[in-house]
Amino acid sequence: MVSEEQLTKIRDTIARFPQKRSAVLPVLHLVQEELGWLSPQAQDYVAELLGLPPIKVHEVASFYTLFNKKPVGRYHLQVCTNIACMLRNSGEILQAIQKKLGIKPGETTADQRFSVSTVECLAACGGAPAMQVNSDYVENLSTERLTAYLAELP
């Protein structure tokens, strides 16, 4: 299901922990890193790698929001709407993204390029309003900066 290179990383990770089950989250991360999301089959695969009953992996995958249970676009725009960002107009940023891309939070564009989500506090309150795009932060957003940022994405 994953490349040989990723499988090596997974094996190294499993070996690092005093107890194998600790590797559930790290291995889910590694599988998602390569596949982009965690299908039920991918979760079963992780269970197999760790020698765990599939439910032990499903219950973890379903609990944590960073594990994608459905496919996401190439760029996953995660806009913080929590209080510090809200006070600095994250609502406008979210509106601008929706208008520009024509999708609502929880949706993906038809070309699979963008997904949009609203997220809870990103610990970027000093640079509010902020969003996370895949694993990178974009802070001190304005609608102008947002437009420029989106235009520059490869």
């Binding site: 107890q19 989250l25 991360h29 219950e59 944590y64 929001t65 594990f67």
Partner: peptide
């Protein structure tokens, strides 16, 4: 030292939830 990445659950900042998560479970 071992680094461990959380996966998006505020509750895991509570110390016993953190330990559960570290053991590969729900927080």
């Amino acid at each position: 030292i071992i680094l461990y990445r959380g996966a998006g659950a505020y509750i895991c900042g509570e110390e016993t939830a953190l330990m559960e998560s570290l053991e590969g479970k729900r927080g």
